[in-house]
Simulated assay, not measured.
Amino acid sequence: MRKTIGRWLVPVFGGLAFIFLLVPIGYVFAFSFNDAGRTNLSWRGFTLENWLNPCGAPAVCEALGNSLQIGAAATVMATILGTAIAIGLVRYRFRFNATANMLIFLPLATPEVVLGASLLAQFLNIGAELGMGTIIIAHTMFCISFVVVTVKARVASLDPKLEEAAADLYASPLQAFWRVTFPLLLPGIVAAALLAFAMSFDDFIITNFNSGNVDTFPKFIYVAATRGIPAQANVIGSAMFLIALAIVIGGQVLSHRRSKLLAAR
């Protein structure tokens, strides 16, 4: 009896949790086809106009463009710095190694309100003008921690003997890194970059503190919520979800094919 209950309990609760997570996404996707008027809160009829003209709502595409630019810039800088830090923390031992590890994890445990307010205070103290530049710096700061944590796990799994073998074959340290270490780290670096971009694109609290008059997509949604979120915002949100889903599925397919090729050899 207990085995029967246990056999059905986990799938049922797992299915309910899965449905709970997908219901908001389904709502956003469904209402992207709504023939909305001034608000997009009630269903008024099916239309493709929102998908054919996603920039129909004022300033929505400008906010999206700002978010994409900020996310791309913050991702590049955070990935480069985070990867270098991760390699340094794993491969080298120095006096304050444990302290550096703790400081890397600190932004992950700090509330975003505290981070946003602290960064705002720093920018005001140095007289920096709030805008795209301050947002990129702020996003790079908190994205570095996510990159370090992700890449660090990948670095720790590598066998140092591979680099030693490359050195025995007269490869310089730079050649050993680019031809041996970097290709092995690349899956972890790509995963870290995607995570950093997602965190940057989705951020509202820290951005709201340090953006000045610059609007990002999350800020646009927050402001629009007071008067009714336009259906075009649902279109953009649905498109971003579908793109992310395609990237994940594509990555899984490529990984599966690579595993089959390695097994065949």
Rank of each mutant, 00 (worst) to 15 (best):
A171T: 04
L130V: 00
A86Y: 00
A166G: 10
V60D: 05
A84S: 12
S67F: 01
W51R: 09
N101G: 03
L194R: 06
P230F: 04
V114P: 00
A72W: 08
W51E: 09
A63E: 09
S259A: 15
T75Y: 12
F94I: 02
L174R: 13
V155R: 01
F209I: 03
V114G: 05
G15S: 09
F241N: 12
V190M: 03
T181K: 10
I25F: 09
G65F: 07
F105W: 12
L262Y: 10
F197D: 11
V76M: 10
F33Q: 10
T47S: 13
P187N: 07
L48M: 15
F220R: 08
V60Y: 00
L81K: 02
V190Q: 01
V23I: 15
A59D: 15
V223G: 12
F29R: 05
F182Y: 12
P54Y: 07
V155C: 00
Q69C: 15
R7I: 14
T134Y: 00
H139M: 05
I80W: 11
F18W: 07
C61G: 10
G127H: 01
T47P: 06
A100M: 11
V214T: 04
L41V: 08
L169G: 05
L115R: 11
N208A: 08
L185I: 03
I205A: 03
W43N: 08
A264F: 12
A198D: 15
A263Y: 11
T47Q: 04
A100K: 01
V155P: 00
L21Q: 06
L48W: 15
T83M: 04
I247D: 12
R95I: 06
L108P: 08
R227K: 13
A171N: 08
R93K: 10
R154W: 07
L242Q: 03
V155I: 01
N53V: 07
A166W: 08
G131T: 04
G237C: 08
T150I: 12
N208H: 03
P24M: 13
I189A: 06
A233I: 04
A128F: 04
L9Y: 10
S67Y: 01
H256V: 13
F105C: 12
C61P: 10
T140Q: 11
A128K: 02
F209C: 05
A128Y: 00
S145Y: 05
H256S: 15
V149K: 12
P111R: 14
A233G: 05
M132N: 11
L254V: 13
G26M: 06
T4D: 15
G6N: 14
L120T: 00
L106D: 02
W178I: 13
S238M: 04
N210F: 11
W43G: 07
T99E: 04
R93A: 09
F96T: 08
E112D: 14
G88L: 04
N101V: 00
S172A: 14
G14A: 07
A36C: 03
L242V: 09
V214M: 05
I243N: 02
I229S: 01
A224W: 06
M240P: 00
L89E: 04
A121Q: 10
P58N: 09
Q232F: 03
L169D: 07
K3C: 12
P58T: 07
D215C: 04
P230A: 03
R44W: 01
A17N: 01
G6F: 14
A156F: 08
C143N: 07
L261N: 15
S157M: 09
V28R: 10
N101L: 02
F29L: 15
Y222C: 10
L130P: 02
M102S: 11
A224V: 07
V10W: 09
A224E: 13
N34G: 06
F142C: 11
